[in-house]
C-alpha cells in the first residue's frame, strides 16, 4: 500500500476536527463559570451541581430510560417474531411484501411518522403521554430489530433445524434450543440498536407527547429554543460519556456477532 500523501492526511484531519469540534466545544463550556458559550471566565462544576439538584430533569431522564428499555424489549420480541416470519415465509411475494412494509417506517421521515401516529392515537382515543410515546417508540423500533436479526437467521443453515427435527425435537424445541441460541447475537444487536433509536428520537416523540410527559430530547429542544444555558452543556457531557459506553457495548456485541463457523450457510 502506498503511503498517504500529506494532502490526504490533512483532509482527513480537517474532517475529523469538524466532526468533533462542536461536541468538545459544548463539553468545554460546561465548565465555564460565566453564563455564555463564547467567553470562558473560570473553571467551575456549578452547572453539574445544578443539574443533579434539578429533580424535574432527573425525572425526565428516568422517563427517557424507562421508555427506551421498555420499547427496546417489547420491539425486540415483536421484531424477532417478524424476522422469523419473513425468513420462513415460503412464497417469495409474501416475503417481499413483508420486507417492503417493514422498511416503510425506516425510510419515512420522522415528521410523517409523528404526524400519522398523532392522528392514529387521537382516532383510537389513546391519551397523549407515556402510553402514546411508548407505543410509537415500539412501533418505529420493530423494523430496526427485524433488519438486525434477519441476516442472522438467513445465514443459519437449515440442516441444523432438520437435524433437530430428525432427532425428535418438537417445533418449540427447535425454536428455543436451536434457532434462538444461534441468533442471540443478532437479537442483542437489535435490542441495542432499538435502545439507541429510542433514546435518540426527538421528532416522533415531539408529535405524540402531550403536555404532561417529556423525554430528554424534547426537553433539550424546549430549553435550546429559549437560548443558551450551560445546564444543557453539562447534560451533554454526561450524555456523551453515556453514549461512549453504549457504543463500546454495541461494538463488543457486534464483534461477537461475526460468523463463528459452526452451522453457517456456505
Amino acid at each position: 500500500m502506498k503511503k498517504m500523501s500529506k494532502l490526504s492526511a490533512v483532509y482527513l484531519i480537517v474532517v475529523f476536527f469538524i466532526l468533533y469540534a462542536p461536541i468538545f466545544y459544548l463539553i468545554f463550556y460546561s465548565f465555564n463559570s460565566g453564563g455564555t458559550m463564547y467567553q470562558f471566565e473560570g473553571f467551575t462544576f456549578d452547572w453539574y451541581k445544578e443539574l443533579f439538584k434539578d429533580s424535574r430533569l432527573l425525572i425526565i431522564v428516568l422517563n427517557t430510560i424507562i421508555i427506551a428499555l421498555l420499547s427496546a424489549a417489547i420491539s425486540t420480541i415483536i421484531g424477532v417474531a417478524g424476522a422469523l416470519a419473513i425468513a420462513y415465509s415460503r412464497k417469495r411475494r409474501v416475503k417481499n411484501t413483508l420486507l417492503s412494509l417493514n422498511n416503510v417506517l425506516i425510510v419515512s421521515p420522522d415528521v410523517i411518522i409523528g404526524a400519522s401516529f398523532l392522528i392514529l392515537f387521537t382516532m383510537i382515543g389513546i391519551k397523549l403521554g407515556l402510553i402514546s410515546v411508548l407505543l410509537s417508540h415500539i412501533a418505529f423500533c420493530v423494523p430496526i430489530v427485524v433488519i438486525m436479526v434477519l441476516p442472522k437467521i438467513e445465514e443459519m443453515s437449515p440442516t441444523m433445524m432438520f437435524a433437530a427435527l430428525d432427532l425428535g425435537a418438537s417445533r418449540w424445541d427447535v425454536l428455543s434450543k436451536v434457532v434462538l441460541p444461534y441468533i442471540t447475537p443478532g437479537i442483542f444487536a437489535g435490542f441495542f440498536m432499538a435502545l439507541t433509536y429510542s433514546l435518540d428520537d426527538f421528532a416522533v416523540t415531539f408529535f405524540v407527547t402531550g403536555n404532561g410527559f417529556t423525554t430528554l430530547s424534547v426537553e433539550i429542544y424546549s430549553l435550546a429554543r429559549r437560548g443558551v444555558s450551560l445546564n444543557i452543556n453539562a447534560l451533554s457531557t454526561i450524555l456523551f460519556i453515556f453514549t461512549m459506553i453504549l457504543v463500546i457495548g454495541y461494538y463488543y456485541i457486534a464483534k461477537r456477532n461475526r460468523p463463528n463457523g459452526m452451522g453457517d450457510r456456505r
Binding site: P22, Y25, L26, M37, Y38, S217, S236, L239
Partner: peptide, 13 residues
Amino acid sequence: WINLLLKAYAFLG
C-alpha cells in the same frame, strides 16, 4: 450517535 439536538445546540453556541 450523539443526540441530534445537542449537536444543533452546540452550533447555536
